[in-house]
Computed example of a mutant assay.
Amino acid sequence: MDALALQATFSDLTTPHVADACLRVGVPVRCAPAAVRPLWPGTHVAGPALPARHGGSVDVFLEALEHSAPGDVLVVDNGGRTDEACVGDLVALEVAHAGLAGIVIWGLHRDTPQLRAINVPVLSLGAYPNGPERLDPQPVDALTRAACGTHTVTREDVVLADDDGVLFLPADRASEVAAVATRIRDTELRQAARMQLGTSLREQTRFADYLVARDRDGVTFRQHLRSLDAAVEE
């Protein structure tokens, strides 16, 4: 699935929808640490991962962009460092000119007002005024894999990001996950609409019946929900 197809497929899906779908189809749920947050609300990003491991110089980002395609998402691995910012306005401008869909940083950014004006979605651990004072040797795999928290991201991954955070999933399962996420979303929308009209969630999920089945047969709430095709949790 190319970048345009990914954006169209996931445009109306949230990261919670997709995370629940991953659980349902057996795809490991790989979320960036909760501290990786968008710079502004209303962020929604979907695209192929473009990894880059930062060693103190922006040249690794420029080299990554040499191999990028419009709609990619730059995933920057700066080891979660909080003593330097590794992405600023010039990198963000170059990313915008290359047509990328966004930047996810396992580290810090700077030039916050300029980044907001450039308007390429950025998610990071926060802002910091000082850039790198080091220059480490560039690893041979600096452009093929990036860490984000405990997870490794490669060109075989898709990046999804919104106000709830960042999710990585294998590109070869994206269509399957999206189809299930769409069903979960639609079920939740129907349940919410019924709640607005006065039918409680307990009524919709036949919660009293669940309590009986739990005490009698050891049924879990998730098993009960699956039997009703209801959505609250996976």
Rank of each mutant, 00 (worst) to 15 (best):
D2W: 04
A3K: 06
Q7D: 05
T9L: 15
S11G: 03
S11M: 07
P16I: 07
P16K: 03
A21Q: 09
P28H: 13
V29P: 02
R30Q: 13
C31W: 01
P33T: 09
A35G: 13
R37W: 07
R37K: 07
P38K: 06
P38V: 05
L39M: 15
L39I: 14
W40R: 15
P41G: 03
P41R: 07
G42P: 02
T43F: 05
T43D: 04
V45N: 08
A46I: 06
A46G: 09
A46C: 09
G47W: 00
A49W: 01
P51Y: 09
H54D: 10
S57H: 09
S57D: 12
D59C: 14
V60E: 08
F61I: 15
F61T: 01
E63Q: 13
L65N: 15
A69P: 04
A69T: 14
A69M: 11
P70D: 13
D72Y: 03
G80R: 09
R81Y: 08
T82E: 14
E84H: 12
E84V: 10
C86E: 01
D89P: 02
L90G: 02
V91D: 07
A92V: 14
L93H: 14
V95T: 13
A96W: 06
H97L: 12
H97T: 11
G99R: 01
G102L: 02
I103K: 08
R110Q: 13
P113C: 07
P113V: 12
L115D: 05
R116H: 09
A117P: 03
A117D: 13
I118H: 11
N119M: 09
L123I: 10
A127F: 04
Y128T: 04
G131H: 10
P132Q: 06
D136E: 09
L143G: 15
A146M: 00
A147V: 08
C148Q: 00
C148M: 00
G149S: 03
G149H: 03
H151Q: 06
T152G: 00
T152P: 01
T154G: 11
V159Y: 06
D162I: 01
D163W: 05
G165N: 00
F168V: 03
F168A: 05
P170C: 10
D172R: 14
S175Y: 08
V177N: 05
V177Q: 05
A178G: 09
T182V: 12
L189D: 14
R190I: 10
A192I: 14
M195N: 08
G198E: 14
T199Y: 06
S200P: 06
Q204S: 00
F207Y: 14
A208V: 11
D209A: 13
D209L: 01
Y210W: 09
Y210P: 00
V212W: 03
D215G: 04
L225C: 01
V232C: 01
E233L: 10
